[in-house]
Amino acid sequence: MTGKLTSIEGVAVPLLWDNVDTDALVPAAPHKRINGGGRDRLHEVLFHEFRFDAAGHLKPDFVLNDVQFAEGPILLAGENFGCGSSREVAVWALLDYGFRAIIAKSFAEIFEQNAYKNHLLPATVDAATHARIVSALSRPRPPQMSIDLVARHIEIDGQAIGSFSADEMGLEMIVQGVDEFALTAQYIPDIVATQRRLTEACPWLAG
């Protein structure tokens, strides 16, 4: 887990498809091939079927294979990013590739929660802000984007573009560099009391 994170700066990679699913992010076949390898090999499988053809050669028309976008660390997506499976490798692969933030019009729920837990920022923007970012990214040289996590604000080449929304607790975990395990540990008595109340009324809930 990283330390505090208050801003993310760099190139934004436009992948404006809607419904980018978890099988697109981490397809089963290459994931199985590196099974047993650590998380530091997951960059190899991210978007594997879009980056490589069946013979393993790079597909030149896929945005991640465009050298000017090779560095990330921000991915600009469309709607419903991360739909599908609960596989957390989808988030780990994005992080291992070098992404620190995904900006989208909306996210699938399980992916979004997995992202927070790994301090990958899922930033939701409205349609107007999204359109302004898309138009700025169509410049000949990819502009520098800056995301202020505290002010929830996005700038491109120093110009204000708009704000993003994020889950309060999830964003706080990213900014503070913490996770909810320590928080939960303080509330064990509440959990135990709730379970006791439930099993007294409904004994079948116990194992």
Binding site: S86, I110, N118, E180, T184, Q195
Partner: peptide, 20 residues
Amino acid sequence: FGIGSTEIAHALAYQALWLP
């Protein structure tokens, strides 16, 4: 409902999850 692997660890450890 379905959860990620970090949530599985949390669920196993605390028998609870923080959810929107």
